[in-house]
């Protein structure tokens, strides 16, 4: 028996909006740790890993580890039927072939339930090694989203380079080129407005901009985004969900031939 009650139901809605265009079908895994998902896009260039810890839920009952295959675009459609302040409860029976979503309005005057059929999805779970990254950049998520959107009007790739000067985002296309440099800035009124750069070694990596742009759909989940970079490794773009979990996107770099 599975029963998960999420008071801040909008979190689940935002998570689905962040991944539904990147991944078509995926397994949600439920264990004592929490509610999680790991999936790659169809071309195996990007990987998303998300976790809502069990502590994030007001009520968390998961009698045995369960993996539930769902079409994410359909799940997003179901979640769009919930109100912005609704409490969302997920329910499934052991060995059942469906997942029930229950939406309760905050004052309990409206209760809706939607049942979705589960799918069998063959997915390979990848081991993500613990890595010391050469550079870690923390910056306002809205600023990062703005930069990616602006650059995608100019070119198809984004070079991210971190030096002691700051972090530089560059692109090049038919109409010309663009460079945007963000310097470390900790003298801000609110911590979420800070840009913090930790650098062991300078690093430059190039990525397909359309993937990075897709990751920024997670912006409503967090005021800050963290970019972790090492030469010849996938970048990690992480949005922390308060104390409750995270969504991490891994993107394989473009490599010089």
């Amino acid at each position: 028996m599975l029963e998960l009650r999420l008071v801040q139901g909008s979190l689940l809605k935002k998570l689905l909006e962040a991944i539904k265009d990147l991944v078509t079908d995926a397994n949600f895994d439920c264990s004592a740790t929490g509610f999680s998902l790991q999936a790659m896009d169809s071309s195996h260039v990007a990987l998303v890993s998300l976790l809502l810890r069990s502590e994030a839920f007001e009520h968390y009952r998961c009698d045995r580890n369960i993996s539930m295959g769902l079409n994410l675009s359909n799940m997003a459609k179901v979640l769009r039927c919930s109100g912005p302040d609704d409490i969302i409860t997920l329910k499934a029976d052991d060995g059942g072939d469906s997942l029930t979503f229950m939406f309760e309005s905050p004052n309990q005057d409206k209760i809706a339930d939607f049942e979705m059929k589960l799918m069998d999805i063959d997915s390979e779970h990848l081991g993500i090694p613990d890595t010391e990254y050469q550079a870690i950049v923390r910056m306002p998520s809205a600023e990062f989203a703005r930069i990616c959107k602006d650059l995608s009007g100019i070119g198809d790739t984004i070079a991210i380079s971190v030096t002691k000067e700051g972090v530089k985002f560059s692109t090049r296309g038919d109409i010309g080129s663009a460079n945007i440099v963000c310097r470390q800035n900790t003298s801000v009124d609110k911590p979420e407005d800070a840009t913090i750069i930790e650098m062991e070694e300078p690093v430059t990596l190039t990525f397909a901009l359309r993937y990075i742009n897709s990751f920024t759909k997670a912006t409503p989940l967090s005021n800050q985004v963290t970019l972790s970079l090492s030469s010849d490794l996938p970048v990690v773009v992480e949005y922390k969900i308060a104390e409750m979990g995270y969504i991490r996107f891994y993107l394989a770099p473009k490599i010089d031939e």
Binding site: M40, L47, H125, L126, G127, P234, A252, K254
Partner: peptide, 14 residues
């Protein structure tokens, strides 16, 4: 020329 690499090149099946 930049070639797109794949995630599976870096992370292996667990």
């Amino acid at each position: 020329v930049n070639k797109q690499s794949q995630i599976t090149t870096f992370f292996s099946k667990s």
